[in-house]
């Protein structure tokens, strides 16, 4: 399914490219000379330089955001937890905008992801602080705190954009709506490494995530240092989110939606929910990207619009399901 989606994602676009050519190019790149080149240089460039990195980035962003959502849902015991709704994405965007428009790339290519991570962690701490300050640990109130903080941070981010050079702002605004179009081979290594390390860590903590769903105090009687564990999961979540935001802008609702779908498929054990979320998240974002690229072809619609639309509807459905007490 993942492979099929990936092939289609590379094949479909303003210039349709046959599936055979897609895999021909890929195999030839991996081991040169294996297949006779029957395609033009420009097609090869489209497949290998533009669409393939873009599809890989879509997969990583989808997998990462879905795993973050799944983990946050466990440690907050909140089925509505999502890096976007909790303001973590906005924090990441704020950090990235600050780096892109104002501070400059003072430590090279790593500046944007690093600043995005710092922004994401900052937003996380603010949301946790606000929810504690307002005594809002219940499920719906944590989300409200997240949305409130998210609005404030986005307002600040917009001030940054407003203050910046008008020529640069167009790119930033476009990027903020969610776009995978900037993917390049040279940069994919950063989100890949972060995703690999963080998902390995989360998988090791699968039992702890399961335990957190039965309650803070009960989890602590199982020997889990609850406060420290929750903070660690939030920081890891901010790390993934920050890096993904830096490369793809704000893509909302993936982290909310995917884990719920996965639980329906494989049950609630995090040893299965996490890999399941990664897989379904990757497939979902590939399709969202295909949709975004084809619906207004040859224009690229920002993918955040697609996930926002699907996710918003899903959110409404989730709320109504909770109300009926299922």
């Amino acid at each position: 399914m993942l492979v099929v989606s990936l092939s289609l994602a590379v094949s479909v676009g303003a210039v349709p490219i046959p599936l055979g050519t897609v895999w021909g190019v890929v195999l030839n790149k991996l081991s040169p000379g294996i297949i006779e080149e029957t395609w033009s240089r420009s097609r090869e460039a489209i497949v290998w330089e533009i669409r393939f990195p873009r599809a890989l980035l879509a997969m990583m962003v989808g997998a990462g955001l879905a795993m973050v959502g799944a983990s946050l849902q466990a440690v907050t015991r909140n089925p509505l937890a999502d890096p976007h709704l909790l303001g973590i994405s906005s924090g990441g965007a704020f950090g990235a905008i600050l780096a892109l428009l104002h501070t400059g790339l003072f430590i090279g290519l790593l500046t944007v992801p690093l600043m995005a991570f710092v922004g994401a962690v900052g937003a996380t701490l603010i949301v946790l602080g606000v929810s504690r300050f307002a005594d809002a640990t219940s499920a719906d109130r944590l989300v409200l705190a997240g949305v409130a903080v998210s609005f404030i941070i986005m307002a600040c981010a917009n001030v940054l954009i407003f203050l910046a050079d008008p020529k640069a702002t167009h790119i930033v605004v476009f990027w903020m709506l969610g776009g995978l179009g900037l993917a390049q081979w040279g940069q994919l290594i950063y989100p890949f490494m972060i995703l690999l390390m963080c998902s390995a860590w989360l998988m090791m903590k699968a039992t702890g995530l399961n335990a957190m769903t039965i309650g803070d105090e009960s989890a602590s009687t199982l020997g889990i240092p609850v406060a420290r564990f929750r903070l660690a999961v939030f920081v890891v979540g901010a790390l993934i989110t920050g890096v993904m935001v830096a490369f793809s802008g704000i893509i909302g609702f993936v982290g909310l939606m995917v884990p719920h779908v996965v639980r329906m498929l494989v049950g609630g054990d995090y040893a299965r929910v996490l890999p399941g979320s990664a897989l379904i998240g990757a497939i979902f974002l590939l399709w969202a990207d295909i949709t975004a690229r084809t619906i207004m072809a040859p224009e690229d619609m920002p993918i955040g619009i697609v996930t926002g639309l699907v996710g918003g509807v899903f959110f409404v459905w989730l709320l109504s399901r909770r109300k009926s007490g299922v």
């Binding site: 399961n210 309650g215 803070d216 105090e217 054990d269």
Partner: peptide, 18 residues
């Protein structure tokens, strides 16, 4: 305890296994 576990689709067997 009196805490009510949130329903994250864990089965009875999985909860006991915790």
């Amino acid at each position: 305890l009196q805490e009510q576990p949130s329903d994250f689709a864990l089965t009875v067997g999985e909860i006991v296994a915790l």
